[in-house]
Design a protein around this nucleic acid. Structure first.
Lengths: 137, 137
DNA sequence: TTAAGAACAGGAACTATTCCTATTTTCTGT
DNA sequence: ACAGAAAATAGGAATAGTTCCTGTTCTTAA
């Protein structure tokens, strides 16, 4: 018996449906606008809470490194993101776009839309202090 | 005659010195605390403005994708960053840490400190809409 | 049916960052 | 060196994305 099961309230379901119906990687307030057409009384707090919930359940992606606002993405297949430095628009790139060997072919299509000017690569981990604390505490 | 030359005011100079004296990738308010020991009346606005200025001049790096706050780094040689998911601490990785072939050796040292659990890769560019606007406007 | 827990709407609070204004400092040309 | 112009500063107000709080409603399980 799992202690937590997936609870899809009407609000959560509609948020998920709206997110799955777009490829625009919307921000929280864009999701708010989309959902409000169907649930006029939903609150922005519910949007945030449920986007977090859906992300914690592994149903959507949370792009918190792109621009000044969080963005959300319902497509869970492995792929990379490209962000316009002028307007903030976010597009998709194939998973292997980072490999130089395939870049010429694979990126041709994306480069019709986005002219790539740079990238950001950052690693995540746990530092030794926090690992030590985890063992002791 | 260059229209803009580098103007290093006392405030800017001390900010730069303090930043060069640490490897901790401090946030703006951490820089504020460091600098305030030497310039007690400096304002946080000046810290932000001058960190932006130094970044625009290419003297420091601005890490705006790491955590919820901007971080700053005076070491300009090419390298990557690793961020602790528990406490937010930021460390350095060698430039070639992303290459799988050298990863075993090159990362050994960093992995003594950070246990790597994931990464973030994102591309930057200009979308076709913005390129079109740029040509017309 | 009822009690307990979860989720909700609405709005206040929080906080990193930016913006504003009057004042001070720095630079430029004479 | 000096006067005017331009830039930078301190201090604080404003902004905005996100989180938190409270009272109410809904769902679940016994």
């Amino acid at each position: 018996m799992p202690t937590t099961c997936l609870r899809l309230t009407p609000q959560r379901n509609i948020i998920l449906e709206e997110l799955r119906g777009t490829r625009s990687h919307p921000t929280a307030d864009e999701v708010y606008d989309m959902v409000r057409r169907r649930l006029p009384h939903i609150s922005l707090g519910t949007i945030y809470r449920n986007l977090d919930y859906l992300h914690a359940q592994g149903l959507i992606r949370k792009l918190d490194k792109i621009g000044s606002q969080m963005r959300f993405d319902a497509s869970m297949d492995p792929h990379l993101h490209i962000c316009c430095m002028e307007c903030g628009k976010v597009g998709d790139l194939p998973e292997d776009a980072a490999s130089v060997s395939v870049r010429q072919e694979a990126m041709l299509d994306a480069e019709k839309t986005f002219q790539i000017t740079g990238h950001w690569l950052e690693f995540h981990g746990v530092c030794s202090d926090c690992r030590t604390k985890g063992k002791i505490g």
